[in-house]
Amino acid sequence: MERIRIYMTGVGGQGTLTATTLLARTALDQGLDVVSGEIHGMAQRGGVVESTVLLGGWKSPKISHGEADIVLGFEPLETLRGLPYLTKGGSVISNTEPLPPVGVSCGRESYPDMDLITDKVRGCSAKCWFLPCRTLGVEAGSVQAGNIVLLGALCASGLVPFGPDALEAAIRKYLKPSLVDMNLKAVALGVAKLAG
């Protein structure tokens, strides 16, 4: 099969590492070769959290600039910061709802304009999608479900060799029973948003 590198980026506390592991498990259960990587340590304390999922036989858990077929942005500023990882002809799926960094909260720095972020993404990707993940997550039942909305969108995009049903199966298999329904709803919302 085609080999795919997925670069994921977000902010500590968003649950991006949970999403990364879920995606890697989904791929493995589909019989794909998978390796995944994450850098954490300070993640919990509001830092940037970067992770990777590489499908189809890559050995490295790390992605260099210009190598990612897909950039999944769990937070718009981090999508923008992560764009150099994108390869030519790559695709981007991003949340549109900001989590302001401390400098912005305190009024020392300003958050980049959302139009600038979307323009920049459009300018360098073959395909891109934007979703209000936080809002859709809340609609599904919790802010924390926002990351699953994004995964749902990824699986519906045709960019990976499995669909939302594979993700749903992994959610049933690996998440706590009490969280399954909410996250299935989150997948459905992500899929619907992509279609609509």
Partner: peptide
């Protein structure tokens, strides 16, 4: 060949890890 790189935006607000 250095890989195709899109210029990163400079001067983006950073997220230093912080005391909770």
């Amino acid at each position: 060949v250095s890989p195709v790189c899109f210029e990163g935006e400079t001067d983006l607000p950073v997220r230093p890890p912080n005391l909770c």
